[in-house]
């Protein structure tokens, strides 16, 4: 009952606040751009490491990571917004006004996704402007964006679940740290086969590695392990959807 209208209301408010306040909008665009500049520009020499065989170049290689990173952090920052709404009491207004409270979680997730789509568009424009090369005429690019969107949804729902349980902005490190670890224990700077030792072992079992490797194969126009990557991302999104909804029940019980 009224799931869609509740989700629409929650998402509208979140997006309205971001897009009418430069102090909220600019960091969302600036941070991914900073990482992209630092990684793709400052570390471009890494592409000369023996065995680095990504044909589209280091800019495209790093673009995939920064796109996924912006998706993940975009989701996490939504959790921070939810925690702030708990501290200001605004969530109580939503809980009171929303006949269907599942719509609150859905609304926050939709807002996170929409915000990230703006970031992704901006990042893509910058990447092409600095000469990023794409293989296979770019026909596989939508799959890359879909994969990153699933990462955004999964991270957003993870952070939402934490925010709903802890209900304080002090919970931000709890939301952010696991995502940070998952991102940076993936093959960020070089392909998986160039990693060695324990970091290779960790990266191998890290689910985000499948996402990054498949994402890079999409931008190269030679998709590989796409099914596994989508399976992992979708499974994480479903898992964290349950986590977020259980968090909502916890918030309801706490009043």
């Amino acid at each position: 009952m009224r799931l869609a209208s509740v989700a629409r209301g929650v998402a509208w408010r979140s997006l309205h606040n971001v897009f009418t306040n430069p102090s909220l909008l600019i960091p969302q665009l600036a941070f991914p751009l900073f990482f992209f500049t630092a990684f793709a520009g400052g570390l471009s020499g890494v592409s000369r490491v023996p065995g680095f065989d990504f044909a589209e170049g280091y800019t495209a290689f790093q673009f995939v990571f920064v796109l996924c990173q912006s998706a993940a952090f975009g989701g996490v920052f939504t959790g921070f917004g939810i925690a702030r709404d708990f501290e200001t009491g605004f969530v109580r207004r939503l809980l009171l006004a929303a006949p269907n409270r599942t719509g609150i979680v859905l609304g926050y997730a939709v807002a996170a996704l929409t915000r990230w789509l703006v970031t992704a568009t901006f990042l893509t424009a910058i990447a092409f402007a600095v000469g990023m090369k794409v293989g296979g005429s770019g026909v596989d690019l939508p799959a890359l964006y879909l994969l990153a969107a699933l990462v955004n949804v999964a991270a957003g729902l993870w952070a939402c679940g934490v925010a709903m349980r802890l209900r304080t902005m002090q919970a931000f490190p709890v939301m952010q740290f696991p995502v940070f670890l998952a991102l940076f224990f993936a093959p960020v700077y070089v392909p998986l086969h160039l990693l060695q030792g324990w970091i290779h072992g960790v990266a191998y079992v890290n689910p985000l590695t499948r996402v990054l490797e498949a994402g890079r194969s999409f931008i190269a126009g030679a998709p590989s392990e796409a099914g596994v990557a989508f399976g992992v991302a979708a499974a994480l999104a479903v898992l964290f959807a349950f986590w977020a909804l259980r968090g909502l029940r916890s918030a309801e019980a706490a009043g």
């Binding site: 009224r2 209208s5 509740v6 629409r8 209301g9 929650v10 509208w12 408010r13 309205h16 939503l94 006004a97 929303a98 006949p99």
Partner: peptide, 12 residues
Amino acid sequence: REHLRLQATLQG
């Protein structure tokens, strides 16, 4: 006014 719009949306 935006608060009222939000509330009206939430209430369908």
